[in-house]
Design a protein around this nucleic acid. Structure first.
Length: 570
DNA sequence: AACACGGTAT
């Protein structure tokens, strides 16, 4: 399909030109520095400058009004409109200006116009059509296409295009380099990343800050933190993005290092922004440090950054993971606009706190508000249904996902549905579902079935599930333990012991479950029987509270599996 | 004399 056909295929409605008081506007405007009166060319340049500054400040309707009043609109003015709308994330508007330009403009689009249009195709299939229609592709058009794929999460395709560009003999520039490095980072390929890093040194692009920042990011995302740290220290020039990149890198590694980097950053005179705080809040969420999170939240509020969408999303997640679901809810309900991540974070939070019905309500509300659910949201709602025992409702959602939204279930979703059916004892149905899967079930799906078999004493099916899971992943300790327990429950002690031996021979050890609590501004991490030093009594004092609650609620711990769970097999 | 492509947050 050609761009022309694309234009006619889309039924856009160009805005009617409203050439109102343009002359009056021009006459009331101060004259230029030289004192010469306005000519048509001069006003056009001035108007275009004004258009650009409107868009930079997000004033799209002011820009539109001005553009509509311009009697002569040259390529540059049209192009400014297209890139301006794109800058403000109004891609449909940008595209419709282009349509209008082709139909009603005096000049044909130039290379600048096409690059702007290409960028406006963000998230649309049309980008490729436009790209292939460009007769003389330059480094900008290539870069735009690569950026499109990278930002949509298709790093492999982006790198493929990057290679095509090189084969086409196009000379690299810092823009194309940084997006290619970002593509490497997104697919975690330090192999390609290092190759491009070498090319950067060769081309002398290491003086370009976006280029070096993207390389730093690449080392972080590839898990090479010590290398990233070294690169960071060697960087001669650093800006806020440099610091944010390193902080985000350490946040992903679940350490509390971001706080040390943050204090160093402040002492070197940098002012944190939304990106910085999002990583700090995520750090608090990772280690469930509520007090710390509250303090950071205070700093965010003081700086007036709490209206930032992404930051609010991070706060929802942090409060939920720190146990304060009501604070999550407060932030969520006070948000002026929400995106898919906001809804998902809130739903996952409610799900983890056992409010299955709330999750279902939120899902329906989200769809009603016009947001299209993705696989992650369905995962959240299915897992909530499973935990809340809303089996039929859960089954309706999976049908809705497949039939209404045409999302194909993956292993994780299948695992969730097996869990949904298996938990209340519909084990046979769960098994039939696995048999009907269009691809081989992985060990997590079989693991979900095994859990259900164990809970409802389906020993024959349980053994089958365990064997399937072990064949796919022989090192899963949990599987051996469960299989051994099934044998033990049947009184087959010899088989149970044999599983233990197999497990030891496979060289896997059970990783101790670790818990932590926060007492008086300090996080204490511990395992069963662990010595915690001088503050032991505080920790036990706090732990006694939930234990009391559980006893009062009539909870009797299930020790059955624990008995067989000992390393020495007692 | 003005218009295009790149880097940081779940």
């Amino acid at each position: 399909m050609s761009t022309k056909r694309l234009l006619s295929a889309n039924n856009f409605h160009p805005f009617p030109p409203m050439m109102k008081n343009y002359l009056q506007w021009a006459q009331n405007t101060p004259t230029q520095k030289s004192g010469t009166p306005f000519n048509a060319k001069g006003t056009s340049i001035l108007a275009t400058d004004l258009l650009k500054s409107y868009f930079e400040r997000g004033l799209t309707s002011q820009a539109r009004n001005l553009f509509d009043e311009m009697p002569e609109r040259d390529v540059v003015a049209w192009t400014t409109m297209i890139s301006g709308y794109t800058h403000c994330n109004e891609y449909t508007q940008a595209w419709s200006v282009f349509v209008d330009m082709v139909k009603n403009g005096n000049d044909p689009p130039n290379a600048f116009t096409i690059s702007s249009v290409l960028k406006a195709c963000k998230g649309m299939r049309d980008a490729c059509v436009v790209f292939h229609d460009i007769k003389e592709k330059n480094v900008v058009s290539w870069t735009t296409l690569i950026a499109g794929y990278t930002h949509r999460g298709n790093g492999n395709r982006a790198l493929q295009i990057f290679r095509e560009m090189l084969l086409d003999g196009v000379a690299l520039n810092p823009h194309s380099i940084s997006i290619a490095v970002r593509a490497c980072a997104s697919i975690g390929s330090q192999n390609f990343g290092r190759q491009i890093h070498t090319a950067v040194i060769k081309h002398g692009f290491e003086s370009d800050l976006p280029v070096t920042n993207s390389i730093l990011d690449m080392y972080c995302r590839c898990g090479c933190l010590s290398e990233a740290n070294k690169y960071f220290n060697d960087m001669t020039e650093k800006d806020l993005i440099t610091w944010n990149t390193l902080i985000a890198g350490y946040e992903r590694s679940d350490s509390i290092e971001p706080f040390f980097i943050f204090s160093q950053m402040e002492s070197e005179g940098f002012t944190p922004n939304c990106f910085t705080f999002t990583s700090l809040i995520a750090t608090c969420a990772n280690v469930a440090a509520l007090c710390c999170g509250q303090q950071v939240h205070g700093g965010i509020f003081r700086r007036g950054l709490d209206r930032n969408l992404e930051l609010a999303n991070a706060l929802i997640d942090m409060y939920a993971k720190c146990g304060n679901i009501f604070d999550s809810c407060k932030i969520f309900s006070e948000m002026s606009c929400r995106n898919l991540v906001s809804w998902t974070s809130m739903m996952i939070g409610y799900g983890a706190h056992g409010y299955g019905k709330k999750v279902v309500e939120l899902f329906d509300e989200m769809v009603k508000s016009g947001i299209r659910p993705d696989q992650v949201v369905f995962m959240a709602v299915l897992s909530a249904c499973s935990h809340a025992g809303l089996v039929d409702q859960g089954l309706r959602y999976i049908n809705c996902m497949i039939n209404d939204y045409h999302i194909k279930p993956n292993q994780e979703i299948y695992g969730c549905v097996v869990d949904l059916l298996g938990r209340p004892g519909r084990v046979e149905e769960a098994y039939q579902l696995i048999r009907s899967m269009p691809f081989m079930a992985d060990e997590s799906v079989w693991g979900a079935l095994l859990g259900a078999c164990k809970a409802h004493n389906f020993s024959r099916l349980g053994k089958l599930a365990a064997k399937k899971a072990l064949a796919l992943r022989p090192n899963m300790v949990e599987t051996y333990v469960m299989l051994s327990n099934i044998y033990a429950a049947e009184g087959k002690w010899g088989e149970a012991a044999r599983m233990r031996k197999l497990m030891k021979r496979a060289g896997c050890r059970k990783v101790a479950g670790r818990s932590w609590i926060e007492v008086r501004n300090q996080v204490y991490s511990f395992v069963v029987g662990n010595k915690m030093g001088s503050h032991k009594e505080w920790v036990y004092e706090v732990l006694e509270l939930p234990v009391q609650h559980m006893k009062e609620a009539g909870y009797v711990p299930e020790v059955d599996c624990l008995i067989h769970d000992q390393e020495d097999g007692t």
